[in-house]
Simulated scan of single mutants.
Amino acid sequence: MKRLIGFLGIILLAGPLLGLMGVAALMNPAEISCGWGSLAVGRIPDSLTAHTRDGGSISLNRQQLTHAATILAVGGQLPGVGRQGALIALMAALTESTLRMLTNPTAHPESASYPNDGVGSDHDSLGLFQMRSASGWGTVADLMDPEYQARAFFGGPSGPNAGSPRGLLDVDGWQFIDPGEAAQAVEVSAYPDRYQNYQPVAEAIITALTQPTSTKPSAAGVTVQETSRIVFPLPAGTYTGTDSFGWRTDPVTGAQAFHAGSDLAAPAGTPILAVADGIVGFAGQRGSYGGLIVIEHTVAGGPVASYYAHMYDDGILVAVGERVAAGQHIGDVGSAGKSTGPHLHVEIHPGGEREPAVNAMEWLAEHGAAGLAGAEAGSTGCRPGKAA
């Protein structure tokens, strides 16, 4: 009989694991390159037409799309934001200003002296996200700066307002609520239901602006396109962390040994998801890994390999050379190889399969993996399997 490991309750990560990355001070409006692959912005088109949820049509010009690119560029350099956070920010800016830097000469006459795309008149609100100086978002000069407004919207420990008013990263569990509700949690609008209407438009903007900007050949010579997003490898609420990356006392020999992956206990048969777009470089049984899938990716212009271990033969659902998408069901949790119970052993190798692994959980958090949740590490890890 296969022994199932019961899973514990999941607790949300309290915040990003790393501090704010530096944001480029000047960007060419024709081409903006972000820090993380999932939000890498390519050439900005002259226009884009998309449809809102209620069927309306909206046409955005190059200036509006440049503001959208600024939001993506800022979000791409903030650990914990990811594609979902960028989507929410775009929904908010579309709803509040149609992605325009709006002055408010009635409330703030000096605002008209800054570069702008038109005039607004909502109380004393300014800019892309219609932020109010009186509410503590910043000075008029701050709020007439698109990059500042994006950083203020995302917030977080290194945000310009230090959590008051709170930005998206200051909202507990924002990743797991409706994107429109998350936007409302930051904007605190009198019309909270407006944001959902712009979600399809925000999706279209991300698709248009984050076309693959870099490709790398895989080990098999096949081109690996830049990933479109990063995803956690197990569905939220299905797992608990049982052994972490780094030096540990080997549970079998008692000697110090290095554990190159992160172990996530989950019931046998739990779907395993590809962490990013890529190409399968290996799929089969490999020593203590048991059933192993290795996927090659291009992230932020560089090669990355992800490992998924301990599947049974019938739990491997992809083949070598197959292209997979981020979040695709590639296999099922098993307990093959050096294992005493069903779990996923996941490794991340920046630089490719032959390069050293890094802490997978930290890497996923840094890259804003969709569906990321945290769990306390326990004592169960990759151990010699027992006879069934």
Rank of each mutant, 00 (worst) to 15 (best):
G159T: 01
A152F: 05
N61M: 05
D124G: 13
L65W: 04
A107R: 10
D117A: 02
Q130W: 00
G118M: 00
V171P: 11
G156A: 13
L102R: 02
E96V: 06
A68R: 03
T52L: 14
N61F: 04
F154I: 05
M144K: 12
R53V: 04
L65F: 06
Q130T: 04
S59T: 04
L169A: 00
H67T: 04
L65N: 06
R100I: 03
R83M: 07
I58P: 01
N116M: 04
T49G: 12
T139P: 03
F153H: 09
G76A: 05
G56C: 02
A92Y: 01
F129H: 03
G56Q: 10
F154M: 04
L102H: 08
L65A: 05
A152G: 11
T49A: 10
A68S: 12
A92F: 07
A69G: 15
L168I: 01
F129G: 02
P157D: 13
A93F: 05
R151C: 13
L60F: 00
M101S: 03
R62S: 03
A150Y: 08
S158F: 09
S111C: 14
R132Y: 03
A93S: 13
R43H: 12
Q64M: 14
G55D: 00
G138S: 10
H51T: 05
S133L: 12
G167I: 00
P115M: 00
L99E: 02
R151E: 07
H123G: 14
D46G: 14
G155I: 00
L126H: 08
M91P: 01
T98Y: 13
D54P: 11
G82P: 07
Y148C: 01
S47W: 15
G156T: 07
L99Y: 01
F153I: 02
T52N: 10
A86D: 12
L126C: 13
T66S: 14
S59E: 10
A68T: 13
D145G: 15
V119I: 15
A152K: 02
G80W: 07
S111Y: 15
I58G: 02
S47Y: 13
P79C: 05
P45I: 14
T49R: 06
A150V: 13
S57M: 10
R132C: 00
Q130C: 03
S57I: 15
E96I: 00
G163M: 02
L143D: 13
Q77R: 13
T98P: 07
S113D: 15
T106W: 08
S133P: 03
S113W: 06
V119A: 09
N61D: 15
L94C: 05
W137P: 05
T139V: 08
V74D: 14
A112R: 07
Q64S: 15
G163L: 06
D46F: 10
T103S: 11
Q63M: 14
D172S: 12
